[in-house]
Design a protein around this nucleic acid. Structure first.
Lengths: 156, 156
DNA sequence: CTCCTAATTAATAATTATTACCATTTAGGA
DNA sequence: TCCTAAATGGTAATAATTATTAATTAGGAG
């Protein structure tokens, strides 16, 4: 529980209670959280913490590779402790994300990275589509509203 | 040059010049473009097209799986014609994206998707890290500024 | 070819997500 | 204990995207 303390102080960054709390929250969550969600959670412990502080620290921590950014589908950026494998089936309708147990970061890919002098820090593999429910829902909609029915207007 | 015409009109959506132009631009570009960039390009042909129209159509086209959204690193969402393989080494500093020639969407993954009743539409595989240059730059910075030197303050 | 209507558009206001700014506070080494 | 760079809270500013609305248009029916 202090690899990050080293990483920070080794570079002259201070160990503030705010940082402690943010990392603790990320450590206790298995989900990936948005800055907003982290802010809310943080405020339960220390109500005066500013959202700007949350953002500032998440950026710093991401830069130091202590946390990692996750840009699933749309909506705000999400964060989690660095190091996990982030491979999901993501529903483009409802946003549900099922973890995949497979990791594509292997032989071939590593070789290409090396050839390019690329310093790999992290990787994401996302399979986008529609979960069972939403897939069904869409098929029904399409069956009906072909060329009329409801408001063909906006969606998503 | 009309698979998308069918997809649209089959569902009662109209074939507007705006849509034509947007898709033409995406077709002629090998890069993935932001809504803003598409807007600028579009306006060269038809200066009166509103950015809102660009966004609206990109959303619709994405929903119909005619184009696909690409959320590389930070910055705005990018778009390209659906169907390409989107596998990159992405530099977290300068944003450079090198295409990978490897596709992880194979056996195992397809099986998991199927088991979940998941309708796969697209997939992205991103390897995040630092390109040769930025990697070097960072190492130099760290060597110097350990615990002092410059503004330890913000960074991305 | 003309008419009609739902779909679409342009323009702009509103909303979200994130960053910048600045005066004040604080971590942590001398 | 003191000092200073780093960090914070509060808020204004910016960027990206969506909603709203009155006016226009694609494309099928007659």
């Amino acid at each position: 529980m202090s690899a990050w303390v080293e990483k920070l102080s080794a570079r002259g960054y201070k160990i503030t209670p705010q940082r402690r709390i943010i990392l603790e929250i990320l450590g206790n969550s298995d989900r990936h959280l948005t800055a907003e969600e982290i802010g809310q959670e943080v405020r339960k412990t220390e109500p005066s913490i500013s959202l700007a502080t949350v953002y500032r620290n998440l950026n710093l921590l991401a830069d130091l590779q202590i946390v990692s950014r996750l840009n699933i589908h749309d909506g705000p950026v999400r964060y989690e402790l660095h190091g996990g494998h982030n491979h999901h089936l993501v529903c483009m309708d409802c946003g549900v994300a099922v973890k995949l147990g497979v990791c594509p970061m292997q032989g071939e890919v590593n070789r290409v990275a090396e050839e390019n002098g690329f310093e790999v820090s992290n990787h994401h593999f996302e399979v986008l589509g529609y979960c069972r429910e939403c897939s069904l829902k869409r098929k029904l909609q399409q069956a009906n509203s072909t060329a009329e029915g409801g408001t063909a207007g906006d969606k998503d």
